[in-house]
Nucleic acid binder design. Structure first.
Length: 453
RNA sequence: GUGAUUGUAGCUCAGCUGGUUAGAGCGCUGGUUUGUGGAUCCAGAGGUCGCCGGUUCGAACCCGGUCUUUCACCCCA
């Protein structure tokens, strides 16, 4: 007899955890709907060639591959074995588990381009899998909640993303967080302005670590990545820049005066802020972070990342604008912008802050109890009457001592217990006990229904 | 993927330099209470010490492997 166990980085969720996850999921879903997004789902597995090459070499390593069914070795030759894992892989595996929701969405858009009305706003809430080394807030199976809109380059989308993030956090009861925002074009412009045109990729990777390892270490890394000493030094004023939004923007306009892209980036950012103010919204929680880079290479415009203060968990939400996501699938020129909430991390954040609203993990309103078979039969009749009135009702299924039945209600935090004894049966009533206050009253059925509704 | 780290009853943890039947608190079960839960008191059940192998007269403790946890790097929700 073996002890059962779970694969690395996966978890079970009990009733209490599920109640909490559902709370998070529901607030996110409601917000997406409020902003006009429509739900889709895609399969857990995709063809491997849909997934590979979309997340960089690192990402390919983290894909879970699915072994072909049947004799998966039938196409493998000894020559393949000699060539190594790469040659064997595409003969034994043709499918993989989805790594994120954005690439499957891109695939979906391309396959359904003729049916969709653009701009298309979709949301998708499903698990994804990554063969990462797990840590706290980092799992091998976790949910993403994506909202993307494709087929428009309107900055209204960017503004709405900010509003959705703020609404979700408000409803989750989280107040202390910041929405870091930047624009990939600004980073491109900075690379140009310091004379390292086209090297914004490595620049981003290095700069992204600024608040983690500090400016000195970033300089070292830039040097290693082949940046000139002079270029690196000219970055310095940007790093030490710490002032309000307006002066940051003004500074950048001067710094990027010779970079067309860079100025476009600043303009886009200002445009999104402008739309917010026209909507009558403020810029609360927004932190324009010139050094925010984000790893994913497909972003081309605005980029977002949300970090909750005072917790050890990394970013709980992120996203950005991409100009050509569907290009790899043969449909160029579709601009889109999207972002994603990490439910599992939001859970960990709320858990760490002890910020879950205290709610019962059972939805049952009343438990019907009885002493003997007559009472049991009486209770069965009431059970249906209560349920038909829309009251979530349970009956204790086995004839047990009344104490047991009360304990059961107590443990499940069921707020009311209905007692169906001989007395009640004769009078055609029910004794209803409030388990919190201990009050108990005899009511006829319609009165009880009113009380419990 | 690289380098560390963790694992003892359902839960949180004790267990001295390897030495008889591995402990506590909480929880659980039964009773105290034959129409009433949360409190008190009493009694009881529950552990192949993650798993496999090695060293030893003897291993929860030492060694190797493996799985899991956490951490740093990498990357990311």
């Amino acid at each position: 007899m073996q002890k059962p166990s779970l694969p690395k980085g996966t978890r079970d969720f009990g009733p209490l955890q599920m109640a909490r996850r559902t709370f998070i999921l529901d607030t996110i879903r409601d917000t997406f709907k409020l902003f006009g997004y429509q739900q889709i789902e895609t399969p857990a597995m995709e063809n491997l060639n849909t997934l590979t090459g979309k997340y960089g070499d690192e990402g390919d390593q983290l894909l879970f591959k699915i072994l072909n069914s049947g004799d998966f070795l039938k196409d493998v030759t000894t020559a393949d074995l000699d060539k190594g894992p790469g040659a064997v892989l595409n003969k034994v595996s043709e499918k993989g588990l989805r790594y994120d929701l954005t690439v499957p969405f891109a695939r979906y858009v391309v396959m359904n381009r003729n049916e969709l009305t653009f701009p298309f706003k979709r949301y998708q809430i499903q698990p994804v899998w990554r063969a990462d080394r797990p840590q706290k807030g980092r799992y091998r199976e976790f949910y993403q909640c994506d909202a993307d809109v494709v087929g428009t380059d309107s900055l209204v989308c960017e503004a709405e993303i900010v509003l959705m993030i703020r609404r979700v956090f408000e409803n989750l009861g989280l107040r202390e967080y910041s929405i870091k925002i930047n624009n990939r074009k600004i980073l491109t412009g900075i690379a140009e302005a310091i004379g390292e045109e086209g090297k914004e990729g490595p620049l981003c990777v290095a700069i992204d670590k600024l608040d983690k390892i500090g400016w000195e270490k970033v300089k070292e890394e830039l040097l290693q990545r082949g940046f000139g000493q002079k270029s690196i030094e000219s970055l310095a004023p940007l790093v030490s820049l710490e002032s309000d939004l307006k002066s940051k923007l003004n500074f950048l306009k001067r710094f990027l005066k010779n970079s067309e892209v860079g100025l476009k980036g600043v303009e886009e950012l200002e445009g999104a802020f402008g739309i917010l103010s026209q909507m009558g919204e403020n810029l609360d929680h927004i932190d324009f972070d010139i050094m925010l880079a984000r790893g994913l290479s497909y972003y081309t415009g605005a980029i977002f990342e949300v970090k909750v203060h005072h917790v050890s968990i990394g970013s709980v939400s992120g996203g950005g604008r991409y100009d050509n996501l569907t290009g790899v699938f043969g449909l160029p020129g579709v601009s889109g912008v999207g972002f994603s909430f990490g439910v599992d991390r939001l859970y960990d954040v709320l858990d760490e802050l002890k910020a879950f609203p205290k709610e019962s993990h059972t939805s049952t309103r009343i438990l019907l109890t009885y002493f003997d078979h007559k009472g049991f039969e009486y209770a069965l009749g009431l059970l249906s009457q209560f349920r038909n009135a829309g009251i979530k009702t349970e009956i204790y299924p086995n004839q047990m001592k009344i104490q047991k039945q009360f304990e059961f209600a107590n443990k499940k935090e069921i707020p009311f217990v209905g007692i169906c004894g001989e007395e009640e049966l004769k009078a055609g009533i029910i004794s209803v006990k409030n388990m919190v206050t201990g009050e108990q009253q005899k009511l006829d059925i319609s009165q009880a229904i009113v009380l419990l509704s």
